[in-house]
């Protein structure tokens, strides 16, 4: 009995310092240095950073949404469906209303309405998922499996599965703006999202509530937390973030389609777990998730610079890295326990 207690104490003290974050940082630096050494003229260049900054915001933002759901002990498999549906609604609106060849000044109000429309579709999608989970007590994995089908289904239904193109030029021009000719708008949006969600989780009451409810919803109820509202708000945020990701995808592709980014769902779950979000809820930080996003982006962009290596190795590496990290963490925790026992012997 005593041994388990010592081991628990040691683990407790360590988790307070968050060894996972440190490990991720080491991994990030390692991958960065490795790629820089292997491809000195390609990897650590402005052009390559610029292209990386264009790639990851869309799935990065969705990963953050999924991470939030996972912290509350759920999961949101509907992010991609929400992103596409909200982008399609915006695209349909723009294509249907903006007169051809209208001057930019005239287009701007339409763009604002389109963005607001898409964000409210995202919010509505999140509200539906959140209601199913919190009010109807459907397990999150099934509820969002259902909403993913539903939202994608609606998106296919209203477009007959065809891509929605012919957006006003101004949209993609704004969407692809670069600050200082280097930092893309999409990266700025990701940065703002990551920082504000990070602050929400670590510095606000609501963030603490999310962690606590994710740890033990029953105890949360007895502590006076309103679980229904916490779950609802979490999925609303996730839905809102998904629609932001959808708008970014729409700007990059200059169109919207029901099946864009289909493999993103599982990749985002993968990123969240790699970034240290506990799949059982209650633990994990946005810092960790961001590092996981960067690690994978460095890896895939770096590998892209080897001509003989296919782009699809990215999947191999993602899966491989995830499993290695899991195995490594497991071995480490076993060793830690053994060491704790040995230490108490001396």
């Amino acid at each position: 009995m005593t041994t388990t207690k010592t081991a628990a104490t040691v683990r407790g003290v360590r988790s307070a310092r968050d060894p996972n974050l440190l490990r991720l940082l080491v991994m990030l630096v390692f991958v960065f240095v490795l790629m820089t050494v292997l491809r000195p003229n390609q990897f650590a260049t402005i052009a390559s950073f610029n292209s990386m900054m264009r790639q990851f915001p869309e799935y990065g933002i969705m990963s953050i949404g999924i991470s939030l759901a996972m912290i509350t002990g759920g999961i949101d498999l509907g992010v991609v469906g929400t992103a596409n549906l909200s982008a399609i609604v915006a695209a349909k609106f723009l294509i249907g209303t903006v007169p051809r060849g209208a001057p930019p000044a005239q287009v701007v109000p339409y763009l604002i309405i389109a963005v607001l429309l898409s964000l409210s579709v995202g919010l509505a999608c999140g509200t539906i998922a959140g209601t199913l989970i919190s009010r109807f007590n459907i397990p999150a994995i099934l509820a969002t499996l259902g909403t993913q089908q539903l939202f994608t289904g609606i998106a296919i239904g209203i477009t007959n599965g065809r891509p929605q193109s012919g957006l006003p030029l101004l949209y993609s021009r704004i969407g692809n703006t670069e600050f200082f000719r280097f930092v893309p708008l999409s990266f700025m949006i990701f940065f703002i999202v990551a920082v504000s969600v990070g602050i929400m989780l670590s510095r606000t009451r609501f963030g603490t509530f999310m962690y606590m409810m994710g740890t033990n919803p029953r105890a949360a109820r007895y502590a006076g937390l309103n679980n229904t509202s916490i779950i609802l708000r979490t999925y609303m945020i996730s839905g809102l973030l998904s629609s932001v990701a959808g708008l970014i995808m729409m700007a990059r592709a200059n169109s919207a389609k029901a099946d864009y980014g289909a493999p993103y769902t599982l990749q985002c779950v993968l990123i969240a777990v790699l970034g240290g979000i506990d799949p059982n809820g209650g633990f994990g930080t946005i810092g960790g998730v961001t590092m996981a996003i960067l690690i994978l982006q460095f890896l895939s962009s770096g590998l892209n610079m080897f001509n003989n290596i296919s782009n699809f190795y990215r999947d191999v590496i993602w899966g491989g890295v995830l499993i290695l990290v899991l195995v490594f963490n497991k071995l480490l925790s076993w060793r830690e326990e053994r060491r704790a026992v040995r230490k108490s012997m001396n």
């Binding site: 993968l270 999947d315 499993i323």
Partner: peptide, 15 residues
């Protein structure tokens, strides 16, 4: 685990 191996196997297939 199965997410990871799924990604691994798909990647191997296409890569």
């Amino acid at each position: 685990v199965t997410l990871g191996t799924s990604s691994l196997y798909t990647g191997l297939m296409f890569g």
